[in-house]
Nucleic acid binder design. Sequence first.
DNA 1: ATCGTGTTTGGTAGCGCTACCATTGCCGAC
DNA 2: GTCGGCAATGGTAGCGCTACCAAACACGAT
Lengths: 352, 352
Amino acid sequence: MDTAGVKNRARRSSGRPTLADVASRAGVGTITVSRALRHPERVSAELRARISTAVNELGYVLNPNASALASARADVIGVLVPSLTNNVFAEVLRGIHEGLIDSRLQIQFANTHYSDVEEERLLRVFLSQYPSGLIVSGIDQPPATRSLLENAGCPVVQIMEIGPNPVDMMIGFSHFEGGKAVAQHLIDTGCRRIGFLGARMDPRSHRRLAGYQTVMEDAGCFDAALVTTTTMPSSVSMGGDLFRQALEKTPDLDALVCNNDDLAMGVLFACQRACLPIPERIRLAGFNDLEMMHVAYPSITSVRTPRYQIGRQAIAMVQAAMAGERPSQAIVDLGFELKIRESTTQKDQRKS
Amino acid sequence: MDTAGVKNRARRSSGRPTLADVASRAGVGTITVSRALRHPERVSAELRARISTAVNELGYVLNPNASALASARADVIGVLVPSLTNNVFAEVLRGIHEGLIDSRLQIQFANTHYSDVEEERLLRVFLSQYPSGLIVSGIDQPPATRSLLENAGCPVVQIMEIGPNPVDMMIGFSHFEGGKAVAQHLIDTGCRRIGFLGARMDPRSHRRLAGYQTVMEDAGCFDAALVTTTTMPSSVSMGGDLFRQALEKTPDLDALVCNNDDLAMGVLFACQRACLPIPERIRLAGFNDLEMMHVAYPSITSVRTPRYQIGRQAIAMVQAAMAGERPSQAIVDLGFELKIRESTTQKDQRKS
DNA sequence: ATCGTGTTTGGTAGCGCTACCATTGCCGAC
DNA sequence: GTCGGCAATGGTAGCGCTACCAAACACGAT
């Protein structure tokens, strides 16, 4: 009967304007419209204007799926970070975002939750979309993941730390040296029983610990009992917990290097609660230099890490590589800065 | 000469296995492979097994661009949040992520940086990809953005707060009531000169302020000089700055409601530095109940907000709507919980 | 005038997948 | 036995875009 079939054998269409619509309105070929959007400099000014008018009149938006399918390349930069809760990575993302303003490229974050398995899975998801670039955290990818990165067919930047054998490019700083710097500072100010507190001991944390250990051994002060770590996630309350554990093991602690600032905050509060004055009884140092550190009372010594710059320059490296410009150096060390504050300074030294 | 042209007139191909490769290896049609991956229950167990084997042997990965192009639907949920630095949204994202484990769907975040213009731009980017669902923060979208959402052609969940006229669905809690609850608590404990500190006054902050103001007016205590706000971003140091401003305007302050916990931390440190004891001289309350609040010294009263649950349930609502199940109620109020701690409790009351 | 070179534009054939049918086989109902 | 209905499977025509050519044209060199 065919009575109900109004749209009998209708061809599906999203209803949105397509390149062909723009092309016919502008009186040009579809490919010229595509070029005008993608490489404006290859199209004459006159056609560019006509096309631009047609695009605006129709409200045309390029279909990224069709584009990616046809060119086997998506205008997407995949960014893999182990945590979003962690303010450290939030700053990196801010740098990436600001480096991408006025660019056709889009960022696509994913959170590996510190899991190698999850990292590999997410990387496969990214790769299936033919990204234009990849930014991954750390340098300790397992072989399978590393191999995926090497065959990604796009620029890859490893961020946060530096080391030998970059997959492609690398930007960060030495966590080992950072750990050394804090420990050395405390040694220099006369501390001997310097504890180390660490949570969520990822590879970067281990390298900071190694830096601390090197300095302690060189000073003849190392004692395994001074190190208190956990694989549990880092948090402020965990800082307090680890501090109490450490104090029980080594009651003669005179300073603490914390693997990050959250832990340091926890120690600060625990000390306030236990009436152990900082820095008089315990010197305290963190890592990363979150904004809170210089505001705290007492203000807390920390290692300022160039998180924003890492993001900003990582994206610049990707864009340069996409344009065919290989960087002069594949490995960029942005360094760090030890911010010495009240928490590791004698009261009498503090007077300026 | 054509000597260099080895791949003369070669057809482009990504080199990856395609559905057709899988189909021929499994001895079935391409469409059956597509179905086996997309709707396994519609394919017989035998073919499913053969196809699964072929997929594994070839290492086949579905091309999401081709899939989205052909079906005008991408397996992507777009999530728009105003900030990533803010721990508040990090928890929401964690909820969304955990709600999506074992799902084919992917999340795609974007950060609007509290900008309506940026929000609209990002929304257009999302829409161009034909997302399967959208999660947006807040309920105050400007008309153009709202219209985009209404015509998105997919489930939309507005999160973080609730109000009338949802675009589609809504989940959150009342910031107005939250603001009222803190203020009322302080009134109840005898405070009269209760200040309000706010930074980055987004619509939700304004509603908390309105809640505070209502309570203050009802108690006959409202004084515009007690309110100190800024449009600048919120931070711990900003908390200290606002506190100093407030103390100058109204030196007789006996309590402070902070628009969020970062500010409250800043006030805490500023008070410690100025030797103004909390709660004896100043009572202090925050908003959101970040982990730090219960660890601080003194521990800080705050309004615990169901951030994780918001994310978790928002994604569940999207998935249900995708399956055609309309929720029994389009608006879900998850409430909040006032956590009363040392910072608003008299010393003598604290003894239990 | 002829040629080469470079610039601008367009035609067309896919990219890999899924919507839309059509086909087949099987079963119970009449 | 024939038929209708359902379930399982497949053929094919796009989805909207861009890579790959080719054509048209301008311009200076020969």
